[in-house]
Design a protein around this nucleic acid. Structure first.
Length: 271
DNA sequence: AGTATTTGACCACA
DNA sequence: TGTGGTCAAATACT
């Protein structure tokens, strides 16, 4: 935590440092989530829950702050170059007179995560496409409340080519949510799988990964995302069908869906 | 029946 | 002309 504060206050961060800071906070968040899971198992009653909750909130907040910082560096690492390239592309495409509205590239921000689903919003998939030089297809999502609330938020999810264990996905968001469907959700991890990363992106989105999920009537089921995780252990990892499963899990986990925190956490706040 | 996903076609851009 | 993003009809799911 101290380390992360230093990273933030140390002048304009390079993309590399920026990325590293986010990763480290993610790791811290992940470990705390695991600790919370362990505590829940050992002491179903509330033990240190408030403290953990506060820590998780703080890390989420720190991530939000980091994500809101634009990468400015053109340094030497791949990440640096990628950030610089993205920015260049963004500048080239923006403010082009006569550019079709539909093609105008809005500001985007991206994360790399092993859990591309369940970021606290409800998404509807509207397309999938094979991308050049990529092993896996890119999926296109827009906010479910596009019609109802005119929310234009979008994201794309693409599994990275590397045979990581579990696989990592690049999730690129564009256009902030304007829908009013959730408040900030403090995400946490219920199982002890080591690879869930949490990224707050710009302070309005969060990754969630829960081994517990629920069916459409709100009953908790426990094996779906575990099954997904099991599938993720294999390489080559995810087929589109599996991504579909993960999308389903995302919907299930959505705060606007049947998810019932009270049921999960008990009668009191459960932390 | 209503809703979500899939997938081929279309469009804009480089 | 190739590529990436989106549309929309068909299909699957609940």
């Amino acid at each position: 935590m101290v380390k992360m504060a230093k990273k933030i206050e140390g002048g304009p961060p390079t993309c590399h440092h920026h990325h590293m800071a986010i990763q480290e906070i993610n790791r811290a968040h992940e470990l705390m989530s695991q600790l919370h899971a362990v505590l829940l198992q050992l002491f179903p009653a509330q033990v240190g829950g408030d403290i953990l909750k506060e820590i998780l909130t703080l890390t989420s907040s720190a991530l939000s702050g980091l994500q809101s910082i634009r990468c400015e560096s053109s340094g030497g690492s791949d990440d640096d170059r990628r950030c610089a390239s993205d920015k260049r592309k963004s500048l080239q495409r923006s403010d082009r007179p006569g550019d079709h509205k539909r093609r105008r590239k809005p500001e985007t921000w991206s994360i790399v995560t092993s859990v591309p689903y369940g970021d606290g919003y409800q998404w509807r998939k509207y397309g999938q496409k094979m991308i050049n030089n990529a092993k896996y297809p890119r999926s296109y999502y827009r906010c479910t409340y596009r019609e109802g609330q005119g929310c234009l938020a979008k994201k794309t999810v693409q599994q990275e080519d590397s045979c990581a264990d579990p696989p990592s996905f690049k999730v690129e968001y564009s256009i902030q949510h304007t829908c009013k469907t959730i408040d900030a959700v403090v995400p946490f991890v219920m199982d002890s799988t080591p690879t869930e990363a949490l990224h707050h992106t710009g302070g309005f989105s969060s990754e969630q990964h829960l081994s517990l999920s629920s069916d459409t009537s709100g009953n908790l089921i426990q094996d779906e995302s575990l099954w997904i995780y099991d599938q993720m252990q294999e390489c080559p990892p995810l087929v589109p069908e599996l991504l579909g499963k993960m999308d389903m899990a995302s919907s299930i986990l959505s705060p606007t869906g049947p998810w019932d925190w009270d049921m999960l956490m008990g009668d009191d706040d459960g932390w």
